[in-house]
Amino acid sequence: MSASASSSAPTSTKDPKAEPAKDEKKPAQPLEEDDEFEDFPVEDWTEEDTQLPSGNTHLWEESWDDDDTSEDFAVQLREELKKLGK
């Protein structure tokens, strides 16, 4: 491919599996589909078309629970210990 082709404006590949991704939001049967990566509807894109502009930080969080729920748990635990104590 020449450099001009690789940097040219997004071109549809017109593959039957490369329909615009919007149509694929519908939940398909999970066990029928496999983990095959689909052809992208375009060849190239800029950072504007990725998740990056919206930032990545909110995507992950710590795996433990916030401490403010530990009150309930402490009560439950005391109950349980009382039961066992009997």
Binding site: P20, A21, K22, E24, K25, D35, F37, E38, F40, P41, V42, W45, D49, T50, Q51, L52, N56
Partner: peptide
């Protein structure tokens, strides 16, 4: 994931 085309939902899921 960071560089994935935003409209390619299935690929992002994968």
């Amino acid at each position: 994931f960071d560089a994935c085309f935003m409209q390619a939902i299935k690929n992002q899921e994968l």
